[in-house]
Design a binder for these strands. Structure first.
Lengths: 335, 335
DNA sequence: ATTTTTTGTGCAAACGGTTGCACTATTTTC
DNA sequence: GAAAATAGTGCAACCGTTTGCACAAAAAAT
C-alpha cells in the first residue's frame, strides 16, 4: 500500500541505504545515482515515514506545548493564542512540530505532560503554565528533560523561563504617573501568590522609592482579575476615604471596573483620577476615555521560549536561564 | 539508558511478547505473570515507547489540527481558541493527541498538512480553514485520508464538515427584528465569497419571504469584517437616503462601527434603528446600548468535529456528512 | 606495475515494540 | 486411559528507517 524506501530502492536499482543517503543528502553519493533515486522518489510519490525515522534517530522533531484550560486569561485577551503563534512560527522555521495539550485544571486528571514525555513523543516541552504541580516539574528536572516555562516560576525553582519585563514595565508605568504630577497612587494588584502580581507591585514600589514618595500599604489592594473586583476596589478606597489621584491596575479588566466605579462616584477620568493598567486588551482603545495601558508581547514570548528550548535541545547541559521580553507603554487618554 | 520492554522481560523472567501482552491486556496471560510483569514495570519505571508502537500499529493516536494564521477572527474573538478547547477535550477523552499547525497564509509557503499527512504523523486531520487550497484538499480526498472541516466548504465540495447553523440563526435573528415591528431591514454582510456571508444572507432572505416582506437589494451591503466598514456602510445608507429601521450585521465588529455611525448621525438605538449582529463578542454586552447578538458555540464545534473525525477513523468508508451546531440569540438592548 | 588512497555502494544490525504461529503442559471429553 | 481441546508462553518476523562497517572499483601515489 504505502510506498517505502525499499520500493524506491528497487525502482532506482540501488540499495535502501543508498536511498536513505540521498534523502539525508550524504555527500558520498554520486550525482548520477542521486538523480536516479530522486526520479524514482518522485515517480512513486515517496515520502519518508516520520515514525520510522524517529524510532532510529530517537527524536521526533516535535515539541510539546502545555496550556492551562483556565479561562480568564485565554478568553479575556488573546494572550495564549498569541504565545502559541509565536511558538508555532519559530518551531516551523526550524522544522519542528507542535504537540498541543490543554491541561484540565482539575486535580487527579491524567497528566498529559507526563505521558508525552515518558513515551517519547516529544523532544522538549514549553509550559504556558505556572501553577504546575511540583511532581511533574520534579520529573522533568530529574530526567533532565529539556523544557521552558512561559512566565516566571512561582517558587523560585531554578528553571529556564521567559517572561514579560513586569518589574520594568511597572516601574515605567508608575514613573509615568508620577511625571504627570500624580502624588498619591494606588495599585490594584492580582492575587499575591501570582508572580506577575508581585513583580508589578515590586516595580511600583521601586518607582515610588526612586521618586521619594513614601509607600503606603493602604493604597495596595489585591484582588482576582475581574471587572467586579476593580469596581469593588475603588468603592472600598472611597469608603475608607483614601481616594488617590491615580490608580495603577495590574490588569485591564480591573481597570475597566475601576473606571466604572469612578464614574459612578461622579468623578472624572483623568482629571480627578488617572488610571493606567497592564496588558492592553483590544477594548482598551475603545473605552472612554481610552485606557493607557502597558502593551505586552505574547507573540515574542512564544518566539523566545521556543528559541531557548532549541538551545537546550542542542545542549542538554545548558544551565537554567531567563529571557525577559520588553513591554511598551501605550499612552492614551486615561491619565 | 532508557528502559525497554526487554529489560522488563528480563526482570520478570518472561519473554518480551508476554510483556507486550500484559500491556495490551491480553486475556490469555495468567494473573500470576501479569502480576510479575506489572511489578517489574513499576520497579523499572517502564513506559512503552509511543514511536515504536506507532511504527507497527500504523497509527499514532494523534490528530492534526490546522489553523489559519489570519488574524481577524482569531484575535477579535476567541473563536479558534474555543474550537481548539473543544477538540482538545474530545481528543483527550479518547486518548488522542493534537498536532497543531498554524498555517502561514502566504502562498508558496510550506504546507504542513501535506507533510504531516504524507509522513504519517497523524491519523486524521481537522481543518479550521476554509480558504484551503484545492491542491491539498484533492490530496486528502484522493488518499481517502480522514479529515473534517470546521466551517462549510467553499465550493460545495463533498467533504465532511461541522458548522454553525448560520442560515437558521440568521432566519431567527431576522424574524426577531420583524416581530419587533421592523419593516425595513438592511443587512451588512461579509465578503460574498465567504460561505458564512452567503448563509447568513440566505437566512435573512428566507425570513423576509416567509413574512411577505419584499427583498430589496439596495439594503444589502457587503464588506470585510471591520469596525470601519460597519461605519462606512451606515454612512452610505444615509447618503443614498435608504435608511432602514433595523440593521442585521453578520459580524459584531461591523455592528460596532454601524452603531457609531448611527450615533454620529444623531439617531437613537434602538428607537430609530435597531441593530442585531452575530458572534456575540465579549464587548457586545458592554456597549451602550448593549448589543443583541447571535451567540455561537465554537467549543461545541470543536467537539463535534472531533467526534465526526473519530467516526471516520473507525470507518474509512463513511460518506461525507455535515453536523450543524445550533446557535442562540442573546437579546439585549440594541433592538 | 604495485601499493595506497579515494569514491561510491551494499550488507546487516539496530531502534522498541507487536503478533501469527508453534509448542508444551494441563485440562476436558469420551 | 488415549485423544482432543484449552491455556499460557516463547520464537521470530516484521514495521520503515538509519548507519557502522566491509568491500569493490577507480584514481592516485610510488
Amino acid at each position: 500500500m504505502t510506498v517505502t524506501i525499499k520500493d524506491v530502492a528497487k525502482m532506482a536499482m540501488v540499495s535502501p541505504s543508498t536511498v536513505s543517503r540521498v534523502i539525508s543528502d550524504d555527500p558520498r553519493i554520486s550525482e548520477e545515482t542521486k538523480l536516479k533515486v530522486n526520479e524514482a522518489m518522485k515517480e512513486l510519490g515517496y515520502h519518508p515515514n516520520a515514525i520510522a525515522r524517529s524510532l532510529v534517530s530517537k527524536s521526533t522533531n516535535t515539541i510539546g506545548v502545555i496550556m492551562p484550560k483556565s479561562a480568564h486569561l485565554s478568553l479575556a485577551n488573546p494572550f495564549f493564542p498569541e504565545v502559541l503563534r509565536g511558538i508555532s512560527a519559530s518551531a516551523n522555521e526550524n522544522g519542528f512540530y507542535i504537540l498541543l495539550s490543554i491541561e484540565d485544571d482539575g486535580i487527579g486528571k491524567v497528566n498529559t505532560i507526563d505521558k508525552i514525555v515518558k513515551t517519547g513523543m516529544v523532544d522538549g516541552v514549553i509550559m504556558l503554565y505556572s501553577k504546575l504541580e511540583d511532581e511533574t516539574l520534579r520529573m522533568l528536572i530529574d530526567k533532565n528533560f529539556p523544557f521552558v516555562m512561559v512566565g516566571k516560576p512561582i517558587n523560585g525553582t531554578k528553571v529556564s523561563y521567559v517572561d514579560n519585563d513586569n518589574i520594568g514595565a511597572s516601574y515605567e508605568a508608575t514613573t509615568h504617573l508620577i511625571n504627570k504630577g500624580r502624588k498619591s497612587i494606588a495599585i490594584i494588584t492580582g492575587p499575591l501568590n501570582m508572580v506577575v502580581s508581585l513583580d508589578r507591585l515590586e516595580g511600583y514600589k521601586r518607582a515610588l522609592m526612586d521618586n521619594r514618595i513614601e509607600f503606603n500599604p493602604d493604597l495596595v489592594i489585591s484582588a482576582e482579575f475581574s471587572k467586579e473586583n476593580g469596581y469593588g476596589a475603588v468603592e472600598n478606597l472611597i469608603k475608607i476615604g483614601k481616594l488617590p489621584d491615580a490608580i495603577l491596575a495590574v490588569d485591564d479588566l480591573l481597570a475597566v471596573g475601576a473606571m466604572e466605579a469612578i464614574k459612578d462616584a461622579g468623578l472624572k477620568i483623568p482629571d480627578d483620577i488617572g488610571i493606567l493598567s497592564f496588558n492592553n486588551i483590544t477594548t482598551a482603545e475603545y473605552l472612554s476615555p481610552s485606557l493607557t495601558s502597558v502593551d505586552i508581547n505574547p507573540y515574542e514570548l512564544g518566539v523566545e521560549a521556543t528559541e531557548l528550548l532549541f538551545q537546550k535541545l542542542q545542549n542538554k547541559k545548558l544551565l537554567p536561564q531567563a529571557r525577559i521580553v520588553p513591554t511598551k507603554l501605550i499612552i492614551r487618554e486615561s491619565c
